[in-house]
Amino acid sequence: MSDITIALDAGHGGSDPGATYNGRAEKDDTLRLTRAVGKILEMNGINVYYVRDNDEYETPFKKATDANNSGADYFISIHRNSSEKNNQYSGIESLVYKDSGIRHTLAKNINKELADAGFEDLGITERPNLVVLKRTQMPAVLVEVGFINSDTDNKIFDENFNEIARAIADGILETVYSQTTKTDAPGTGSSPDIPANYSMPASPGISENPGMPACRCDEEGTKLYRIQTGAYRNKENADRMLDSLLIEGFPAFIISDDGYYKVQVGAFLYLTNAIKMEQRLRRFRYNTYIVYD
């Protein structure tokens, strides 16, 4: 096997169907296609880490964290696009944090192969606020494989499914084989103003910003300050709050405690850093208070 690992993410999942059209759900198309792409990569000697391999919901931040922890060299998230009006647009598109370096090469290669499989190529778009592009620590691309509310694109997707899977895999393989060393990684963005002693509790020892040292938050017996933005009996309400925080770039997570789903941000050794984060959250009009445990 190769020493290269590709993290493949099937967009959406579980309670989040993604875009839908005439009974068709994005989460089903992406899972089927991701599995097909993964099999081709594995047949070519590439290690594959499936960020989502079943019908379950994970937050975008959790997906990025899992991919980082897997040690993957590249991250590809597979989605299907949608538009306000049915049959308004058609074509494929790749999204990147910044259109440069290996990210650009990977997106360009995938787009070219998908165009050969029958889709119109809509190009590469920078989307620096997407969590799975911003928080991943390797070159990352989100591929929109046609519009799910386009009859033209759905026909291509269904009739040329094997060619589409091969196209994405070939675009990845072409990029991998053109690189002899890891460059452009950590490969996305970093979140401004996160204190230097911050570490995400769900992934101890992983620093949120490239080059930023992890704190001692994972040491047994260490008490931490966290900022709580809500406590809910209903998990869907907690998930909505979590998604709002993650979209705005906050390192948020959910803990289950005493029958409540508590949405919290950060894990700080020092109260002063927790206060700074709370002030940022309040500028975004979140109701907050600091907890200590």
Results as ranks from 00 to 15, higher is better:
residue 2 S to P: 08
residue 3 D to W: 11
residue 4 I to F: 10
residue 12 H to D: 07
residue 12 H to C: 09
residue 15 S to Q: 14
residue 25 A to V: 12
residue 26 E to T: 04
residue 28 D to V: 02
residue 29 D to Y: 09
residue 31 L to Y: 02
residue 32 R to D: 03
residue 43 M to L: 10
residue 44 N to G: 07
residue 47 N to C: 06
residue 50 Y to I: 08
residue 53 D to F: 04
residue 54 N to A: 13
residue 55 D to N: 12
residue 61 F to T: 08
residue 67 A to C: 11
residue 69 N to P: 05
residue 78 I to A: 06
residue 80 R to N: 06
residue 80 R to L: 02
residue 82 S to K: 01
residue 82 S to V: 03
residue 83 S to N: 01
residue 87 N to L: 00
residue 90 S to A: 06
residue 90 S to F: 05
residue 96 V to Y: 01
residue 97 Y to K: 06
residue 105 T to E: 10
residue 109 N to Y: 02
residue 111 N to Y: 06
residue 111 N to T: 05
residue 111 N to V: 03
residue 117 A to H: 11
residue 118 G to N: 06
residue 126 E to P: 01
residue 128 P to R: 07
residue 129 N to R: 13
residue 130 L to R: 09
residue 130 L to A: 03
residue 135 R to D: 12
residue 135 R to Y: 08
residue 136 T to P: 03
residue 137 Q to W: 06
residue 138 M to D: 01
residue 138 M to I: 02
residue 141 V to H: 01
residue 142 L to G: 00
residue 143 V to P: 00
residue 148 I to N: 01
residue 149 N to H: 00
residue 151 D to S: 04
residue 151 D to G: 00
residue 152 T to I: 11
residue 152 T to L: 08
residue 154 N to K: 01
residue 156 I to V: 10
residue 157 F to H: 11
residue 167 A to N: 00
residue 168 I to F: 06
residue 171 G to V: 06
residue 173 L to G: 11
residue 177 Y to H: 14
residue 178 S to N: 04
residue 181 T to M: 13
residue 189 G to I: 04
residue 189 G to Y: 04
residue 191 S to I: 15
residue 192 P to Y: 04
residue 193 D to R: 11
residue 196 A to D: 10
residue 197 N to E: 14
residue 199 S to G: 12
residue 199 S to N: 09
residue 209 N to P: 03
residue 210 P to S: 08
residue 213 P to K: 10
residue 214 A to C: 04
residue 216 R to A: 13
residue 217 C to V: 08
residue 217 C to D: 08
residue 220 E to Y: 14
residue 222 T to E: 15
residue 223 K to W: 08
residue 230 G to L: 05
residue 230 G to A: 09
residue 234 N to K: 13
residue 235 K to I: 14
residue 236 E to W: 08
residue 236 E to K: 14
residue 236 E to Y: 09
residue 240 R to W: 02
residue 243 D to P: 00
residue 244 S to Y: 08
residue 244 S to I: 05
residue 245 L to T: 07
residue 246 L to Y: 02
residue 247 I to N: 11
residue 250 F to L: 04
residue 255 I to G: 10
residue 256 S to A: 15
residue 257 D to K: 15
residue 264 Q to Y: 09
residue 266 G to L: 02
residue 272 T to W: 13
residue 282 R to K: 15
residue 284 F to I: 10
residue 290 I to K: 04
residue 291 V to M: 07
residue 292 Y to K: 07
residue 293 D to F: 12
